[in-house]
């Protein structure tokens, strides 16, 4: 899993690339959580993510919860087709 972060004003955009599973979920947390904790709005670009499992969904949910606690927000900006399929399945869990 690779990542790149760009900053425009108070918005940090995290571009994630590769496969997100249990093995790399903590790496994603280590990138995203400090940005949220600094009070920035965080945009996640998942266009380059070819595979994501429940661990990746958990990171998204945790990020959203954390952002609410910090009075900021996390938004998904671009999502690959494989990730969209997993998100659709996860939404049934809501």
């Amino acid at each position: 899993m690779k990542f790149k972060v760009t900053e425009v004003e108070n918005i940090s955009t995290v571009f994630l690339d590769g496969e997100i599973d249990m093995d790399v979920a903590d790496n994603v947390r280590e990138v995203v959580f400090p940005l949220i904790d600094s009070g920035k709005e965080v945009h996640l670009n998942l266009k380059g993510v070819q595979y994501m499992d429940s661990s990746g969904i958990s990171v998204l949910v945790e990020s959203n919860q954390r952002a609410k606690q910090k009075n900021t927000k996390v938004e998904l900006k671009e999502v690959s087709q494989p990730v969209e399929k997993v998100l659709a399945m996860a939404r049934k869990f809501l």
Binding site: M22, D53, S54, S58, V61, E62, V86, A90
Partner: peptide, 17 residues
């Protein structure tokens, strides 16, 4: 439930789906 975000629960849901 989704608010209890431990992956195992969601993973089992995926398998069932």
């Amino acid at each position: 439930a989704i608010d209890d975000v431990k992956p195992g629960g969601l993973g089992t849901f995926f398998i069932q789906e």
